[in-house]
Nucleic acid binder design. Structure first.
Length: 93
DNA sequence: ATAATGACGTGAT
DNA sequence: AATCACGCCATTA
């Protein structure tokens, strides 16, 4: 079933971010910068974070997006939760 | 239209 | 190696 796509009214920028994040396979991570590059907004890495922050769609594995400096990065449910999930998927450690 | 905000990045200290 | 200050951008108030 297709889920309604007009519920949340996302901006095109956000959609690009989400679509790109959806492509990240389990067990892998991607940096905010990389996502920015992939959607052709090489300098919008900050905005990518903001977009993911607003995201609530569980189809988007936003926990797989980490910082470029090696740190875990933020997460709506707390960075601890994020790290836990990543370890569970075998993406880190 | 302008200012503030934030799940970031990088170079300097 | 850890912090800080400043820069970048889209979104929101």
């Amino acid at each position: 079933m297709q889920k309604p796509f007009f519920k949340k009214r996302t901006t095109s920028f956000q959609r690009k971010v989400y679509e790109e994040v959806k492509k990240i396979p389990s067990g892998q991570t991607r940096t905010y910068k990389e996502i920015a590059d992939l959607i052709l907004h090489p300098y919008a890495f900050r905005a990518v974070g903001s977009a993911l922050n607003k995201n609530t769609d569980s189809e988007v594995p936003c926990h797989r997006v980490v910082r470029s400096d090696g740190k875990i990065g933020g997460y709506r449910g707390g960075s601890g939760e994020k790290e836990r999930i990543l370890r569970k998927e075998g993406a880190i450690r």
